Amino acid sequence: MYGRKAYQLVKEFTNSESGQLTGFNDDLFAQVIEDCKEHVLKLQSLLRKMQEEGSDNQTTKNADHFGALMHHLALVRNKRCLMAYVYNRAEVVQNLGWTIDLVLPLEIEEKLSISEKEYFKSHSKTLKSYMSDLDIDLAVDMVPPKDPYIKVRVLEEIGNVVLSDQSANLTRYAILFLRRTDAEQYISQGKMEELTG
């Protein structure tokens, strides 16, 4: 059945957890591309045959016409499935650029194709460059805060630091009220946790 492999490729992505990646399926991806090549060859052969016979594509509806139509539609479907697979994976990789620095953890990196790794590096560098040009960290508050100050508990010994509006001694297990922008970097590093309630 035409399009089965392409369907499996898209289904593989949709069955994975939202925002998570499974390993790039090089084998199935290559099989779908081979299917596309076969459809192109068969389509060209049928179109050449119809042209040699002098049949008019608009008025003559024979087996060759419908065969060419089937190969064309299968080719279009396979291409759409390939594009959906690549596009949705690229969105996840792009979102990683907002949460992870320039170096990917090994467990994520081994799931990416070579082109996805290059895309991540390029996107991350562009994002970092843009933020440094603006002199602002756009990844700090992904959700607008209700209050600029939050209550945090220090999980690891950090020591004396100068924050935007005060200097503080961030000793282990200390509970403090800090500006969200000051605490966010330590929270993302796992050195602090926000206390709610």
Rank of each mutant, 00 (worst) to 15 (best):
K125C: 08
E52C: 02
E109Y: 07
K11P: 02
R179Y: 05
N88K: 11
K42Y: 13
T60Y: 04
D182M: 03
E12D: 14
N25G: 06
Y2K: 12
R48Y: 14
M83G: 01
L96F: 14
S55H: 05
P144F: 13
H72T: 12
L178V: 03
F66R: 07
D101Q: 15
V103Q: 12
A183P: 02
G159C: 03
I108K: 02
D182I: 05
I108D: 00
G197R: 05
M131F: 07
E38R: 10
A183E: 00
L176K: 00
Y87I: 02
G197F: 12
E156N: 10
R172C: 06
A174W: 08
K121Y: 12
M192F: 00
L96A: 05
E193K: 05
V10T: 07
H123V: 11
E156F: 09
N95I: 04
E107R: 03
G190M: 05
A84P: 06
G97A: 01
A139Q: 13
P105G: 04
A6V: 08
K191P: 01
I158V: 15
D35H: 03
N15F: 09
A30C: 06
E110H: 14
L75Q: 01
K128S: 09
L170N: 00
S115G: 08
L112Q: 01
S167N: 13
L195P: 02
K42E: 14
E38C: 08
P144Y: 15
L127Y: 12
N95T: 08
F66V: 08
T171L: 12
G23E: 13
F24Q: 07
H65R: 10
E107T: 05
R153V: 00
V10S: 00
Q94G: 05
V76K: 11
Y85G: 03
I136Y: 13
H71K: 03
R153Y: 01
S113C: 09
L138D: 06
L21G: 03
I187R: 08
V93D: 02
N57F: 15
N95F: 09
L134T: 10
Y2D: 08
Q20K: 15
D56A: 04
L82S: 01
H39R: 04
A168C: 02
G97E: 00
L82R: 00
Y130Q: 14
V40D: 00
V10C: 02
V40E: 01
T99W: 06
N95D: 14
G19T: 07
E12I: 12
D64S: 07
M83Y: 06
G3C: 10
K128T: 10
A139T: 15
S188E: 09
V10N: 01
V93N: 04
K125A: 08
H65A: 13
E109H: 07
P148M: 09
Y87G: 01
S16G: 12
P105M: 02
D26G: 07
N95A: 12
I33N: 08
T59K: 07
E118S: 07
E53M: 13
